[in-house]
């Protein structure tokens, strides 16, 4: 899965042999990530500057081009942005410039904007078997009615906390803290 926000390397991660044909798992390339915390007024200002408005609806994700804003809690959003180039310098550079831009529009508005670009890892899952694959370890109802495209939530993946975001009918993005990624990937390979 490669799109405007997520860059997936060619090499796919292991899945169980009995996973439905066409199902694939990739570790996404580098992203700039911020945790933004503040009230709705501050969130509105950030949304304007960021180019994606920060959803006020629980469990909603907003997305435009190479950026996304994921609701995490009533005063907490995870902002994602894809750097223009590969490599850590591009991440550092975009993180620095975004932090500056957002700080500028916020001015004295109380808020917290924390760079977590390297805290998280994003896994990209796509294909007809993704919901079954996830439901081996995620207890949420992933029926498209119960968990529609665009929904995002923090939840548990067996014993690891994750952020699960449905980006398509058979596409999910799974974010976790980087040291938990081998565990999550190991379980996904286990089936």
């Amino acid at each position: 899965m490669s799109d405007t926000l997520f860059h997936a390397p060619a090499e796919a991660l292991a899945l169980p042999p009995h996973a439905a044909a066409g199902t694939a798992l990739h570790r996404a390339g580098p992203l700039v990530r911020f945790v933004f915390r503040g009230d709705s007024g501050a969130a509105a200002k950030v949304g304007e500057a960021f180019g994606v408005s920060l959803p006020q609806t629980p469990l909603a994700a907003g997305r435009a081009g190479d950026r996304a804003a994921l609701w995490q809690g009533p005063d907490e959003w995870l902002l994602l942005a894809r750097p223009a180039a590969d490599g850590p310098q591009a991440v550092d550079g975009l993180a620095r410039s975004l932090a500056g831009e957002l700080a500028a529009v916020l001015g004295d508005t109380p808020h917290s904007l924390v760079d977590v670009s390297e805290r998280n890892i994003a896994l990209l899952l796509e294909g007809p078997g993704v919901a079954d694959l996830l439901n081996a370890h995620v207890f949420l109802d992933l029926d498209p009615v119960a968990f529609p495209v665009g929904m995002v939530t923090r939840t548990l993946f067996t014993k690891a906390e994750i952020v699960l975001w449905r980006t398509g009918s058979d596409r999910f993005v799974l974010e976790c803290w980087r040291s938990f990624a081998p565990y999550v990937e190991g379980l996904l390979a286990e089936g």
């Binding site: 915390r37 390297e118 805290r119």
Partner: peptide, 11 residues
């Protein structure tokens, strides 16, 4: 209080 917390253990 106007203060927010974010874990950066793995940042």
């Amino acid at each position: 209080l106007k203060v927010w917390l974010t874990s950066t253990t793995e940042q």
